[in-house]
Structures are given as structure tokens and as C-alpha cells.
Simulated assay, not measured.
Amino acid sequence: MIATSDIFTISNQKQFEKTALKVFRHQREHNLVYREFCDLLKINPQEVKSLTSIPFLPIQFFKSHAVVSNTNPIQETFSSSGTTGMITSKHLITDVSIYEESYRSGFTQFYGNIEDYVVLALLPSYLERDGSSLIYMIEDLIRLSKQKESGFYLHNHEELIEKLEKLDQSGQNVILIGVTYALLDLIEKHPFKLQNTIIMETGGMKGKRKEMIREELHEQLCAGFGVTAIHSEYGMTELLAQAYSLGNGIFECPSWMQILIRDTEDALSYVKEGKTGGINVIDLTNINSCSFIATQDLGKKYPNNSFEVLGRFDNSDIRGCNLMVL
């Protein structure tokens, strides 16, 4: 059994690889869905000796299967957003304290003490449904900030505008976390000149606006908020870890998360740094579900495990990787 302390104390690449291989063997043994996937690929676990030889489970499996690596009771079920009638992903969480430690430690690693910030959240699409892992995280960060000004906003833009201006002018450090379309709606109502506020977009137009390339989006948000950089959070229902970008769309991972970039034509091989391909995520905090996930995002990897997200696959299937998706 892998202790969570082994995951959160990783400090170098050798440790990461050693722990990842232990997690692979554990999940190959105890996760029935992952084991069947490995068997279909004819993977001999004894021959898996590097990160690139670990099989990555297509993310669609979370829509059709219960992806769990133990028989403990389910404490939380996180679900993805989707339009009416769409099958959504379900992430069954048997130990929510691991998620809490992951996002709390991840936030500290990138931003320092949460108590130094007022946390404002503009997340209408997420607030209007149940089962959002993002709302779970932000609710907890708001509570941990111990700032009476911290809180959620739905459509009460005037109140948020007034609070943002007042807090920023007082010199208070603020993080405004928002879904992309809602941030654009806000700056259309009121242009800002913020000095002490971090704007963090969580992605997604949610069908409310046309999709935009990141450069164009960030240019508009920088101009509208009067800031020099837009921060971003990269996370998803099927993960317990988040990567953060402090600007320019370049994401960095916490020490328990890494990405690999697979070939779009051959899902079992990888491309070199700086080349575009499909994003495979290793999230070691997903110890109780699956830590090795082939996402439907396209990206590039750079030195020091940083990466860029460039968009999504056009088709719903990940080529060469949908053996069991029903």
C-alpha cells in the first residue's frame, strides 16, 4: 500500500518515477477497469519500468465505468458539467481528505498562505449544479482564507464590481477566480484598473460565447481588468491535482503531478518537447481511482515539466485509445 505521505513529499524526478511505478502496480492489481484495459493492451506489469511504458486510461471511462482502486465507501461523487441528455463523467472519491490536501498544498506551493488573500469566485455555471469538484475546492479555500469579504457571486455583478474596487484600492491582496465567459461579461459592464488583484480563469465558455484562442482571450481580460497577466487553473473532474499558470498560458504542476504528450496518431507513443500532441496526466493523488489518464486536451510540453494547453481533440474518440469505451 502506498502512503499519501510518500506522494506529498516527492522532491525530485527519481522519487516521482519510483512512486508512480508503485502506484501503477497497485492500481493494475486493485482497479478492475484499469486492469482490464491493461490486459486488452497486453501489458505485462513486470515489463513496465518507466513512465512512458505505463498505460494511460482514456478519460471517457469515467463516463461509462466506476473507476476505483479500493472497496471503501464512496465519500463524494464529483461530476462534470454537460448539456441536457449528455453523459457526464463521475469521479468516485473514497477519501476526500486526499483531495483537500492536494489543492491546499498545491495552492500554497504556487501562491503562499491562503490567509493572505480575499478569495472571490465568479462561477455561475458551476454554482448552478451539484457535484462540482471546483466548487468544493473554492468553498474550502474561501473558508480557509478567514476573510469575511471572501465569497461566491452568481449574477450580482454590481455588488462584485463595488467590492473588487474597494478591496483593490485598500491594498488588500485579492484572487478573483472566474469561469471565462463570466469574466468577459464583468469587464463589459465595468472596466477596471486593478493593482492588487490576481485574475484567475478556469476556462470554459459553457456555450455562452464563441470559443477564443488564449492570446486573444487574455489580451481582452488584461485590458478589461487593467492587469499585466491572467492566471489560469488546469484541473478536471477526473483529477484531484491542479496545475497553475501565472501568466502566458504556461502551466506548472505541483510535485505530485506531471504530464506527457502522446502522439495524436499513435496513442501509445510520445512526441518530443515543444511538439503538439494529446495530454496524458499523471496525478499521483488519484491513488484511489486512476492516476494515469489520457485526456482529450491537446498541448505541448516544455522543460521543467511545464506545459501549454492548445485546445481539444475535434472528435469524441481518442484515436487508438478507445478499446473499452462503450
Rank of each mutant, 00 (worst) to 15 (best):
I2F: 04
S5T: 15
I7E: 07
T9Q: 14
S11Q: 03
Q13C: 07
K14M: 13
Q15P: 04
L21D: 07
K22Y: 10
F24L: 14
H30E: 12
Y34M: 13
F37A: 13
N44P: 12
Q46C: 11
E47W: 13
K49F: 11
T52N: 13
P55A: 14
I59N: 05
F62R: 02
A66G: 02
V68Q: 13
I74V: 15
Q75P: 11
S80I: 12
G85F: 03
M86R: 09
I87E: 09
I93A: 13
E100R: 13
E101Q: 15
E101R: 13
S102Q: 07
S105Q: 11
S105H: 06
G106D: 04
T108A: 15
D116K: 11
L122I: 12
L123R: 10
P124R: 08
S125L: 01
Y126C: 02
M137G: 04
I138L: 14
D140T: 12
I142P: 10
K146F: 09
K146I: 08
E149V: 11
H155Q: 05
H155L: 03
E159P: 03
I161Y: 12
L164T: 06
S170Y: 04
G171Q: 02
N173H: 11
I175H: 12
V179M: 09
V179Q: 10
L186N: 05
E188R: 15
E188G: 07
I199H: 04
G204N: 09
K206T: 00
M212E: 05
M212T: 00
H218A: 06
Q220R: 10
Q220W: 00
C222Y: 02
G224I: 01
G226T: 11
G226F: 08
V227P: 04
I230C: 07
G235K: 05
E238M: 05
E238R: 05
S245P: 06
G249Q: 13
I250Q: 04
I250Y: 06
P254W: 00
W256I: 03
M257A: 03
L260N: 01
R262N: 03
R262E: 06
L268V: 10
S269A: 08
S269C: 11
K272V: 09
T276C: 06
T276A: 02
D283Y: 08
T285H: 04
T285N: 07
N286A: 12
S289I: 11
C290M: 02
F292L: 08
K301H: 03
Y302T: 00
Y302D: 01
N304S: 02
N305I: 00
V309P: 00
N315T: 15
N322M: 07
L326T: 08
L326V: 11
